[in-house]
Design a protein around this nucleic acid. Sequence first.
DNA 1: CTGAAAGCGCTTACAG
DNA 2: CTGAAAGCGCTTACAG
Lengths: 343, 343
Amino acid sequence: MTKTPAGHSEADPASRPRRVTASDVAKQAGVSRSAVSRAFDPNAYLDRHKREIILKTAVKLGYRPNALAASLQGMRSNLVGVIIGDMTNQYDAEFAAMLLSRLNAANKWPLLVGGSMPVTEEAIMAVLGYPLDAMIVRGGSLDAHLFDDCAKLNIPLIFSGRIVDAPFADCVCCRNAEGTAQAVDLLLRSGHKGLGYIGGPGTWSSDRERLSGVTSTLAQNGLSLVGQVQSDFSYEGGAQAAASLLADDRVDGLICANDAMALGALSYVRNHTSKTVPDDVAIVGFDDVSLASWPDFNLTTVRNPLGTMIDEVLRLLEARLADPMRLSETVMINPILKERGTH
Amino acid sequence: MTKTPAGHSEADPASRPRRVTASDVAKQAGVSRSAVSRAFDPNAYLDRHKREIILKTAVKLGYRPNALAASLQGMRSNLVGVIIGDMTNQYDAEFAAMLLSRLNAANKWPLLVGGSMPVTEEAIMAVLGYPLDAMIVRGGSLDAHLFDDCAKLNIPLIFSGRIVDAPFADCVCCRNAEGTAQAVDLLLRSGHKGLGYIGGPGTWSSDRERLSGVTSTLAQNGLSLVGQVQSDFSYEGGAQAAASLLADDRVDGLICANDAMALGALSYVRNHTSKTVPDDVAIVGFDDVSLASWPDFNLTTVRNPLGTMIDEVLRLLEARLADPMRLSETVMINPILKERGTH
DNA sequence: CTGAAAGCGCTTACAG
DNA sequence: CTGAAAGCGCTTACAG
């Protein structure tokens, strides 16, 4: 019983079948191994006819160069690590969807860490075992010594949603304080002065910035927050937070650190109180997820411009790959107030 | 000027910096290259003291074995291709989030193709250049010759949301017709007999199955669909479809091929008609995305059990990796009717 | 327990 | 234009 190259038909059933290799193609096409390599490099010198034959037998055999073996020769792996903690969060899910397809379009292949569970350090370490061209980190908390690990492995880092000061690390971030400042201004103008704030856990800088935009703007107007609760960025959390804040009758406006919580708050007011939005209580979110503009919610919010954010991430990525030694760059993005029906 | 191993400090600024290698560690630790390899294999024989030293200098240098070089030796790459067309779709986004983190937990690293744009064949071809352990395909359409390509490369395929009959390809799928049949039964029992159906584009088998569950159940009751429109699985599409269907006064119930369209339909009825839900019009969705249970919607729907689906995908994956030659397996999952407020 | 050596699949000077 | 050869970083028999 002869073994067919890379075929599973006659191979040992227990053993893992092999991938077709350049040698297989070379043998089959009656050319040298080098010729096969050259056939896949448009710029390489190779007899036109020979190239044709090689490409044809490659298709027949289902051969494609193993990108990883190629990466050992100093070629880029085109693998990009992407760390996204919680895609359960609407905004992060939208971010992920767009980022991933944009990476694909740029011939970069995202290796994803995260999803619906908190990202473990083990997971990051494991993915660092691959020769990543770069690593993109969305929001969240991340142990500082990850930076060291990446630096030692010469894997550039690109952060979105937080600012990190490290060599060879680039950042793109929203001007969070400015966004919530605009939201406060808006509520003040529409006559809401008893403001409550629904924040996140406060562990991320973006979260703290959003809060500071609120407090400083109020201070400028001789006011201060009537109430404030730390929640968890979820719809349910927002509803609960609204319940506790609205127990205080002075509260007539809710600023929320993201849309999910704002939506939860809105739902709470509608379904569990006799107050109306926006007359009795105004609500403003942050992010502008697609849900926010649904007529069911029509939520006034601060837009955290997704497209711009991702454009910049990709630009930074290309720039870093083109010049690994360039100075770190941080891009600040202006949020945009979207006035809809809840203020 | 001496070159530090893998350091960027003294390297040529233009050149791409190197990764630390096992040789670097061996040199630094004063041991053989093989010893370094062995230090990372818990089962390998190696002097305890020596292993300690090696591991310590590995940490110092930031070394980790290049998983790709290892995969050339016949080790698994632990790379799994994941094709998800449109994560903009709520259910697919939830599916992606859960699948990706479950893969991480199983020490598999998802290489993602797709996101928010249609998946191009080029993208799939490109990702096939990596030595994938397997490929997971979620829903959607996919050219048949992809199967050939994967088969030739010996990359097993696992499908979720559609059934494909190919050697070495496993599937997990919802009993779609059964789900919509239950939905129709429910509406019939609650006195809604003038049913309209809002479907998808009809290009996927799951879509067609859902429709057939509706029509056959109606037929069993001596009834037939009053109206039917092909839409696009989106919220906006659902709203439009509802508008056109409800122009016919006989329609008092809407069965939708997914939740997004059902939510759009619900919103249309509430905001653009004088009808009430569920008395004048009942609405049933399919999937049971997290939004469906929000009090804002409280949508009656057919649950397409995400957790079970993904459990099975992972089980099938492990089984296939353990025995590449095993017979194809197809797992059918029972949908569960969730009775809420819109019927 | 250990090091030298072969080999995984690839690219790329090198010498025709 | 072309093939033989070196080398990428790794694992794993092989022979001590």
